[in-house]
Simulated assay, not measured.
Amino acid sequence: MRYAQGGGLTAERRAFREGLRMRAADLFGQGRSSAEIAKELRISERSVQRWRKAWADGGPRALRSKGPAALPRLSDELFAVLEQELARGPAAHGWPDQKWTLERIRSVIGRRFHKSYTVQGVYYLLRRHGWSCRMPARRAVEHDEDAVAGWVKGTWPQAE
Rank of each mutant, 00 (worst) to 15 (best):
residue 39 K to C: 13
residue 20 L to W: 08
residue 58 G to F: 01
residue 3 Y to P: 01
residue 110 G to S: 10
residue 106 R to F: 05
residue 159 A to H: 09
residue 143 H to L: 07
residue 152 V to M: 12
residue 128 R to F: 09
residue 37 I to Y: 06
residue 10 T to Y: 02
residue 77 E to M: 00
residue 7 G to Y: 01
residue 111 R to V: 11
residue 102 L to S: 03
residue 125 L to Y: 02
residue 99 K to E: 10
residue 17 R to T: 04
residue 5 Q to M: 15
residue 82 L to D: 05
residue 90 P to E: 02
residue 63 L to D: 01
residue 80 A to F: 06
residue 129 H to G: 05
residue 53 K to E: 14
residue 24 A to G: 02
residue 4 A to V: 08
residue 150 G to L: 13
residue 112 R to S: 13
residue 27 L to W: 13
residue 100 W to Q: 09
residue 40 E to W: 06
residue 47 S to K: 06
residue 85 E to R: 15
residue 134 R to W: 12
residue 26 D to R: 13
residue 60 P to E: 08
residue 118 T to L: 08
residue 41 L to C: 07
residue 77 E to A: 14
residue 39 K to M: 09
residue 64 R to V: 05
residue 107 S to Y: 12
residue 70 A to Y: 08
residue 60 P to K: 07
residue 86 L to T: 03
residue 118 T to Y: 12
residue 9 L to M: 08
residue 126 L to M: 10
residue 73 R to Y: 11
residue 95 W to M: 04
residue 103 E to N: 10
residue 134 R to T: 11
residue 95 W to A: 09
residue 160 E to Q: 13
residue 122 V to L: 03
residue 124 Y to S: 04
residue 89 G to T: 10
residue 125 L to F: 06
residue 55 W to H: 06
residue 153 K to P: 01
residue 99 K to D: 02
residue 67 G to P: 01
residue 67 G to R: 00
residue 120 Q to Y: 11
residue 58 G to R: 00
residue 23 R to M: 11
residue 131 W to K: 08
residue 11 A to E: 11
residue 65 S to E: 11
residue 151 W to A: 11
residue 98 Q to V: 06
residue 92 A to I: 05
residue 108 V to I: 15
residue 127 R to F: 11
residue 149 A to V: 08
residue 100 W to S: 05
residue 91 A to D: 04
residue 130 G to R: 00
residue 5 Q to R: 08
residue 140 A to Y: 09
residue 84 Q to R: 15
residue 65 S to V: 03
residue 109 I to P: 02
residue 66 K to Y: 07
residue 112 R to I: 09
residue 83 E to W: 06
residue 98 Q to H: 14
residue 25 A to S: 10
residue 11 A to W: 00
residue 56 A to P: 01
residue 49 Q to S: 09
residue 29 G to Y: 01
residue 145 E to C: 02
residue 127 R to V: 10
residue 116 S to Q: 15
residue 36 E to L: 13
residue 1 M to P: 02
residue 25 A to F: 07
residue 66 K to D: 13
residue 46 R to I: 11
residue 33 S to C: 03
residue 94 G to D: 01
residue 30 Q to L: 12
residue 123 Y to P: 01
residue 60 P to F: 03
residue 148 V to K: 01
residue 24 A to V: 04
residue 101 T to S: 15
residue 95 W to H: 14
residue 60 P to A: 06
residue 11 A to S: 11
residue 73 R to C: 09
residue 125 L to R: 00
residue 75 S to A: 07
residue 154 G to E: 14
residue 34 S to T: 12
residue 102 L to H: 05
residue 132 S to N: 06
residue 65 S to A: 13
residue 56 A to E: 13
residue 68 P to C: 10
residue 150 G to P: 03
residue 37 I to C: 09
residue 79 F to L: 12
residue 11 A to Y: 00
residue 13 R to H: 03
residue 10 T to K: 02
residue 118 T to E: 13
residue 26 D to H: 07
residue 153 K to C: 07
residue 95 W to R: 07
residue 135 M to K: 15
residue 108 V to Q: 01
residue 112 R to G: 01
residue 142 E to R: 15
